Simulated scan of single mutants.
Amino acid sequence: MSAPDTNIEKQTRWHRGPLIGMAVVVLFALGYGAYYLGNLAEEGNNPDNPDVIIDGRTGEAEEVQ
C-alpha cells in the first residue's frame, strides 16, 4: 500500500541535503582513490637499496659499490 498523503515537493526538500552529502562523499572517495593509485604508479615496485643490479642488455648481475 502507498502512503495516503504524499507531498513530493516536501519530500524533495527533505532529501536534498542527504543526497548532496552522499554525492560529496562519493566524489571524495573517487578523488582519494585516484590519488592513491597515482602515488602507487609513481613510486613503482623498485627496491630502495638493491645489493645486485641486473644489466638489461646482457642479463648479468652487477654488484653495487
Rank of each mutant, 00 (worst) to 15 (best):
F28V: 11
R57V: 13
W14F: 14
I20R: 10
D55T: 05
V52K: 09
E62L: 03
G21C: 06
A34S: 08
V25H: 03
R57Q: 09
A23W: 06
G33T: 04
A61K: 06
L37A: 06
E42M: 09
L30E: 02
L19G: 07
Y32E: 15
P50H: 05
P47N: 01
G56T: 12
P47W: 00
Y36R: 15
E63G: 02
R57P: 00
V26N: 01
L30G: 08
A23Y: 01
G21Y: 04
L30V: 14
D5E: 12
R57G: 02
N45V: 08
L27M: 08
V24N: 07
A41R: 03
V52N: 08
I53V: 09
G31S: 02
M22V: 11
E62F: 03
V24Q: 07
V64L: 06
Y35C: 00
Y36T: 03
I54H: 01
M1Q: 11
E60M: 04
A41C: 02
I20V: 14
V25Y: 01
V25D: 05
G38I: 00
E42S: 09
D5V: 11
Y32P: 00
L19H: 10
E63R: 03
H15C: 12
Q65D: 15
S2W: 09
T6W: 13
E9S: 09
V24G: 05
I20E: 07
T6R: 15
N49Q: 10
E42R: 12
H15V: 15
A3K: 10
N45K: 08
R57M: 06
G38E: 00
V26W: 01
N49H: 13
W14N: 15
I8R: 09
G17W: 06
N7G: 05
T12H: 11
V64I: 05
E43W: 02
R13K: 15
E60K: 07
Y32F: 15
F28W: 13
L30M: 14
M1N: 10
A41F: 02
V26C: 04
G38C: 00
I54V: 13
I53H: 01
V25F: 06
G17K: 10
E42W: 13
A61G: 00
G44Q: 02
L27V: 11
E42Q: 10
E63L: 04
R16I: 09
P4Q: 05
W14L: 15
A29F: 04
L19C: 13
D5S: 14
L37H: 07
E43M: 08
G44N: 02
L19T: 08
P4A: 05
R16P: 00
G59N: 01
E42P: 00
I8V: 14
G21R: 01
L30K: 05
T12Y: 12
P50W: 01
L27W: 01
E62D: 06
D55W: 05
G56N: 10
Y35V: 08
G56Q: 10
Q11H: 07
G59Y: 00
L40I: 10
E63H: 02
Y35M: 12
G44V: 03
D55G: 05
L40S: 11
N39Q: 12
P47S: 00
L19V: 11
K10N: 08
R13H: 13
E62G: 00
T6L: 15
N39H: 10
N39F: 11
R16E: 14
G21T: 04
P50K: 03
Q65W: 12
W14A: 14
P4I: 02
V24Y: 04
A23G: 07
P50F: 06
E62T: 02
Q65H: 11
I53A: 08
